[in-house]
């Protein structure tokens, strides 16, 4: 996101919002409301909500930097009035707009967070009011789950439906993956979509797929899969480390998931690169290898590459050191073939 063209007080707040929000908020489009200066002062934010995004327009006035911004919600949310409800006037209570300070870069984020929280409450209330027996039942069983998000779709063209985003597994995946690249907390959600059926059929509860009961089983198997995936990262890392004494330090490695490694090797006066691709099924599935010459080029001036090599002696039961040794042995033999292949390709020019 570029904050160029914004007056500094807006760009400071926007920058803070994009970099500090717990969700990944994106700025979609920017506009200017000024006749003369052309300073950008209004933009559309894409805010993740219920495994989808909502679009809110934030309207500042570059000519009036002290004025608090205004927000335009989506066309579907005409009834969303975050600081008003019918029972009481919420404007009397303090909120993130009540003592606006444009010098404080954290304000926009605070405002958007508060509005998003209120939007969550608003959607939850709407879903709770839908006259559908099955939905009412599911609503009551899932309501207790922390962090659940709901969305009621009432578009004119689209069929009425209710979406749930149920957070699963209370585990910190970010901490489990060493060198994790994510700034935001990674979470796994279950998305459930119910078409709204106001004329309730007389189906018995037994026939329903009750999510309240289904969720614990789902979480159990998910947890197993997550743990397996995390431990397989470690297996791949150890394998790449075992290759280092034989092939030298890798030139490049995918240091988060260890799915790729690149080595620079020489056999006599013939030097080439070895690319190693590891699938998520490693070690059950053997790594795919590709050799790339650093000396020979094809007529398009691209380095000559070998086809993907997947047929060589392999056993998933070997120790990683043995795996590395076998690959090294295979590469010693294969380098001769590749050298021949390269020089032939070179001569053809």
């Amino acid at each position: 996101m570029s904050s160029e063209g914004f007056p500094s007080f807006i760009s400071a707040q926007l920058h803070y919002l994009v970099n500090h929000s717990p969700q990944t908020i994106k700025v979609e489009q920017v506009w200017s409301g000024c006749k003369y200066s052309g300073s950008l002062d209004r933009f559309t934010l894409l805010i993740p909500y219920c495994l989808d995004t909502i679009k809110w327009d934030v309207i500042y006035n570059a000519d009036f930097p002290l004025a608090a911004p205004d927000v335009i919600f989506g066309p579907e949310d005409e009834e969303f009035h975050p600081f008003h409800d019918n029972s009481a006037d919420v404007t009397a209570t303090k909120n993130s707009l009540s003592d606006w300070n444009n010098k404080d870069p954290t304000r926009l984020l605070a405002l958007i967070q508060e509005l998003r929280d209120r939007y969550m409450t608003y959607q939850r209330k709407r879903v709770g009011e839908v006259d559908d027996d099955r939905l009412k039942f599911e609503y009551s069983t899932m309501l207790s789950r922390e962090g659940i998000e709901m969305h009621m779709n009432s578009g004119v063209e689209k069929p009425e439906e209710v979406k749930f985003a149920v957070p699963l597994l209370d585990m910190n995946i970010n901490k489990m993956v060493v060198g994790c690249p994510w700034r935001h907390q990674q979470r796994i959600y279950l998305q459930v979509i119910y078409p709204v059926n106001r004329k309730c059929q007389t189906t018995s509860l037994v026939g329903w797929h009750v999510h309240g009961e289904y969720l614990p089983h789902l979480e159990e198997s998910l947890e197993r899969q997550v743990l397996e995936a995390v431990s397989s990262i470690d297996v791949r890392r150890r394998f790449i480390e075992a290759l280092a004494p034989l092939l030298g330090r890798p030139v490049e490695t995918d240091s988060v998931f260890y799915r790729k490694a690149l080595f620079f090797v020489a056999s006599g006066n013939f030097s080439f690169l070895v690319l190693i691709f590891l699938s998520t099924q490693f070690p059950k599935q053997q790594p795919a290898l590709m050799l790339q010459s650093s000396l020979y080029f094809n007529p398009q001036s691209m380095p000559i590459k070998s086809p993907l090599l997947t047929e060589y002696p392999w056993s998933p039961r070997w120790e990683s050191s043995q795996m590395a040794e076998r690959i090294f042995e295979f590469l010693v033999d294969e380098s001769l073939n590749f050298k021949k292949y390269c020089s032939e390709g070179h001569l053809q020019q």
Partner: peptide, 9 residues
């Protein structure tokens, strides 16, 4: 200027 034609908050 340059904003959606819906009443804002």
């Amino acid at each position: 200027r340059q904003s959606a034609i819906r009443p804002s908050m």
